[in-house]
Design a protein around this nucleic acid. Structure first.
Lengths: 188, 188
DNA sequence: GTCTATACGGAGATAGAC
DNA sequence: GTCTATCTCCGTATAGAC
């Protein structure tokens, strides 16, 4: 007998999922309500309106991202490799919240955009601390961004399945190492 | 006395612009109609419905992309550098159509996704012909993708204005050259 | 804490006048 | 070829019952 998942959590998960798969347009209250198996009134008890629901998702991402940043700082492989590794969508809580909020940002939600900006900047700062050279750091960031968009966003680009995700990551990590070592040579 | 721009063109331009700036959600018939300065009936004379309007934009992109691919093939700097150069949004016809269609794909339009897939694959094929190594080719593609998303999509990621676009491109082209030269060493 | 009923507006689309 | 008028549906939100 597992306790049924609280309605509030079911609602937020459903909203997140719909944002990812259908986009902001598809993430209507009706759709959320159906997916979460609550009534419209039930939803609106937990979240005053749609904006409040988006706000809750954004807050959730803020917390998950802060925790992840700490992990990134402490990762023995270093921030660059951690970042690229983490830029393939595997459906973790962080992945889902992140892509959901990206969708909101794409729909011109300024709070969502601001948070993403913060997160992205934190990543960049860590990478640059490790790598030194800002141009190489930027190239690594772009590589990770491309990866995220390529594979994580349904319809963002083609998900080109010739390149099997799991196989291609170690190869990309070698490219990252190549770039890092070049940055060291330059600074020396 | 310049002849007024035909209504059909004005409509398509307005739709494109709204897709880019407001997303599919904001690109309503009402909004298009206002921006293009036609009536709703006028719009629906030229395009039977919203889907037809999207279809026209997709066709427009198909033609622009085909022409661009030819240019890419013939560019003396080679496909890789051409691609990265072209991956900063400068508001060309191709840029605008491309981002517009990306938005449609994000809203789960399968025709839009398919076309983007084709375009992306064509780019990859040219890059790989030039570079040889598939992993390096992929890294270059990802770099270009990241660039496009970073700078081209309002809200996609942060547009981090610390990195001035125009200044950063030549630096990134050097990274591309670095990757290319590494691919040659590997194959030798 | 969750439900039903309902008001309200916005968006897509049709019919037909000019 | 472009306009106005109008219909319908869907999505958000409120009120109030259980």
């Amino acid at each position: 007998m597992s306790t049924p998942r609280p309605a509030r959590d079911r609602i937020l998960d459903a909203y997140e999922e719909l944002l990812i798969n259908e986009g902001p347009r598809g993430a209507t209250l009706d759709a959320v309500v159906t997916r979460a198996e609550v009534s419209k009134g039930g939803l609106l008890y937990h979240f005053k309106n749609k904006e409040a629901m988006a706000g809750a998702l954004i807050e959730k991402l803020r917390e998950l991202a802060a925790a992840d940043l700490q992990t990134m700082r402490e990762d023995p492989e270093g921030p660059s490799r951690y970042l690229v590794r983490g830029s393939v969508y595997v459906g973790s809580d962080l992945d889902r919240a992140l892509i959901g909020v990206v969708r909101l940002a794409q729909a011109s939600d300024p709070v969502a955009s601001d948070l993403l900006k913060d997160i992205h900047r934190s990543w960049f700062d860590l990478v640059q601390q490790e790598v030194g050279d800002p141009v190489i750091s930027r190239a690594i960031m772009l590589l990770a961004d491309g990866l995220y968009y390529n594979e994580g966003l349904p319809g963002g680009w083609p998900q080109d399945h010739r390149n099997d995700r799991s196989r291609s990551v170690p190869e990309l990590l070698e490219v990252v190492d190549l770039l890092k070592s070049h940055a060291q040579q330059t600074s020396a």
